[in-house]
């Protein structure tokens, strides 16, 4: 047995910030796995997802929720989904393999991103300063998801409804991304 232990660190050490009625919080208890569809394997994967998660795979740009592991399937690209789910003891891809078998190509993305939630009445006004996507609820309703560019950072944004958004940005630039978010909120308060 090794004499050494490896401790886990999240990108922003689980930061939580509140500005008036806008709150920013790092989410640290969710895993992300990319699922790529093997050529010609859409149906097989789709069936596996329905049987394991009781949900249909979403269209690109949409999110489908499952009560199993509190999983969210994000339609990222024509042949790719992200599944975001509650972290458990086992390795993330093992967990997905245990559910979906070999119906997709799985890649762990849990450590590739910093995951932030921004919420509160002025959160959309704050995001207006950095997000080129129209976040108006008629255009980007709850469970819409997409990747875009915010202040030079490629960022995935998911509408959780009611002025709440989940943001995923590259882990290595998590500090810069946090500053971007903070500045946006400060500038509109």
């Amino acid at each position: 047995m090794s004499d050494f232990m490896l401790k886990v660190r999240s990108p922003l050490d689980g930061i939580e910030l509140t500005y008036g009625d806008v709150a920013i919080r790092e989410i640290t208890d969710r895993d992300i796995v990319s699922i790529a569809i093997p050529l010609g394997g859409t149906e097989t994967l789709s069936k596996a997802v329905i049987s394991a998660y009781q949900t249909e795979l979403p269209a690109v740009g949409r999110c489908a929720k499952s009560h199993v592991d509190n999983a969210h399937f994000l339609g990222m690209a024509p042949d790719q989904y992200f599944i975001v789910f509650d972290r458990s003891g086992s390795e993330s891809t093992d967990k997905i393999t245990s559910k979906l078998g070999k119906t997709g190509y799985f890649t762990d993305q849990s450590d590739s991103w910093v995951m932030m939630r921004i919420g509160g009445p002025k959160s959309r006004t704050a995001l207006e300063r950095i997000c080129p996507i129209d976040l108006h609820p008629t255009v980007f309703p709850e469970e819409s998801v997409t990747r875009t560019l915010m202040e030079h950072l490629s960022t995935i944004i998911l509408s959780e409804g009611n002025d709440h958004y989940l943001l995923l940005s590259a882990r290595s630039s998590a500090g810069s991304f946090l500053q971007v978010l903070q500045k946006s909120v400060e500038n509109v308060l």
Binding site: A59, V60, G61, P78, P132, I133, T146, T148, L149
Partner: peptide, 10 residues
């Protein structure tokens, strides 16, 4: 075609 109108900077 899948995501609708998007700014060219993406």
């Amino acid at each position: 075609p899948l995501l609708g109108p998007r700014d060219v900077s993406e």
